[in-house]
Simulated scan of single mutants.
Amino acid sequence: MTADDRNAPGDKGANGGGPDTSRFPIPSAGPTTRPQEPLPSEGFSPEAAAASLAAKNPLIRFTLRGSADELEASAAGTKPLLGCFVMDGQATMIYAAPNTGKTLIVLYLVLKAIAEGKIDPDRVIYVNADDGSGGLATKNRLFQDVGAHMIAPGQKGMKTRHLTEKMVQAVEDGSAKGTLIIIDTLKKFTDPMDKKRTSEFGQICREYVMAGGTVLALGHTRKNPKANGKPQYQGTTDILEDFDAVYVAELANGKEKGGRRVVLFDMEKKRADSPNVVAYAYADEPGASYEEKLASVEPVDPDDYADYRKSDADVDEVRIRMAIADLIGDGYSEGKMALAAATAKACGISKSRAIRVITQNTGTTPGLHLWNTETGAHNTQSYRLIIFD
């Protein structure tokens, strides 16, 4: 048999056995190698990565990855802008009763910040929806003389709806950054009693400060104070929840002579290192012009705040009883001393007076007593309101 015969099709190969595999290559049994993918640091693009992930989760289209430099450049530093309590880059709300002097003090703080170079006057916008023609003219002259802006519904074609519309526009085009908007007053642009509308307004203000702006809104307190006699903000809790800082202002006791009034601003909420209370005084002499009153505004020394607080005797006992009843009704049951401490804090009175009122109204006789006691866990004395038929 020739060599050609041995390699003919159908015959066994020269290796003495298996079929000829020369036409059917067998893959190597050794380890396979795969092309190495580039490390994330090699040619990584946040935009490209976001685009690829967007198909997996629709929320990825809103990712801020890759925008750190831009956000840091547009962020406003949290530092005092107006006085020591209205912070740059935040939304602040001030409530006070009409004719307290809140607008007067705010305008003093704005003009002072401009004079000190804290803010460019061309970036200040005072939205005046709380004045008649005389007040508009007076305040506009004050702002015009320093190069700041005042706008008012009914003037130059402005409608109340334009405020939120233009705030949204400023957020979108970037012109909100570095600006200060003073809204006077809140109820002219939203209904404080309408939770949905107030929440929407608060969200617009939130977006505005996130874009680098500052918002200061003014509002009124309710006619009826809290049980402790302190003024209570008007409307739902949405502004309190959505704004960064909330202060409630009230006229202090008439301790000063010469027609001066002192206004205390008590903090209800804050996010920055703002003070818990600030106070300003101004002259309120009969016949004094608005400009004269404005020129008279000055801060009150913190060491003197206590002089303008209501004394223990100034707090009506009916209000103390109402405060105690509110605490008991809310389930406060940590003992007499704890209840007295909570009452003293709520009413601004001494703890001893709170104990006296608690004791006088404790018993089991309807019409004479308002609450009774029972022993709870660990022999703790708790209180229950007496229900009158």
Rank of each mutant, 00 (worst) to 15 (best):
P299K: 11
L251D: 09
G213E: 00
M337V: 11
H369N: 09
L294I: 04
T92Q: 05
A152E: 09
N99F: 15
A170S: 09
L107M: 13
L180H: 01
R206T: 09
I320E: 00
T190H: 04
I119R: 02
D69A: 12
N253K: 13
S296L: 04
S350G: 14
D238T: 14
D194N: 13
R161N: 14
V209M: 05
A346C: 04
V124K: 00
K230E: 12
D20G: 06
V318S: 14
Q232G: 07
N228Y: 07
A137S: 11
M87L: 12
S52W: 07
A342G: 00
F24Y: 13
I114Q: 00
D303R: 11
N379I: 05
I328V: 02
F243Q: 05
A96M: 07
V318P: 05
E285R: 15
G16N: 05
A51V: 11
L264W: 03
T63W: 04
K230Y: 10
H378G: 07
K159A: 12
A3L: 15
G16D: 03
G157V: 06
D194M: 06
K56S: 14
N57F: 09
A54K: 13
I26W: 08
K166I: 08
G13A: 15
Y208V: 00
K293N: 03
L136T: 08
T78F: 12
A288F: 11
P38V: 06
L71F: 08
S274G: 10
C84H: 12
K255V: 15
L82E: 01
T221Y: 01
Y290V: 07
Q234K: 14
G219E: 01
S67P: 03
V277F: 09
H369L: 04
P40Q: 06
I181A: 03
T237S: 15
R197F: 14
N224Q: 14
Q203I: 12
D326C: 09
I386M: 09
G348K: 06
D389G: 10
A50Q: 10
K255D: 14
T236E: 03
P35Q: 10
G135Q: 11
G132E: 08
R384E: 07
M150C: 03
K12D: 15
P299A: 12
D330Q: 13
K12S: 15
T179W: 02
D191I: 10
T100P: 05
P275G: 01
V278I: 11
G212C: 01
D238K: 15
Y383L: 02
D266Y: 04
K226V: 09
N372G: 10
G254E: 13
F265S: 04
M158C: 11
R261G: 03
A245R: 08
I183G: 01
N128G: 08
A176N: 01
K293L: 03
S352Y: 03
I358H: 00
D304I: 06
F24V: 13
R206N: 09
E298H: 14
A55Q: 13
K166L: 11
A14L: 14
Y208W: 01
G212K: 01
P302G: 06
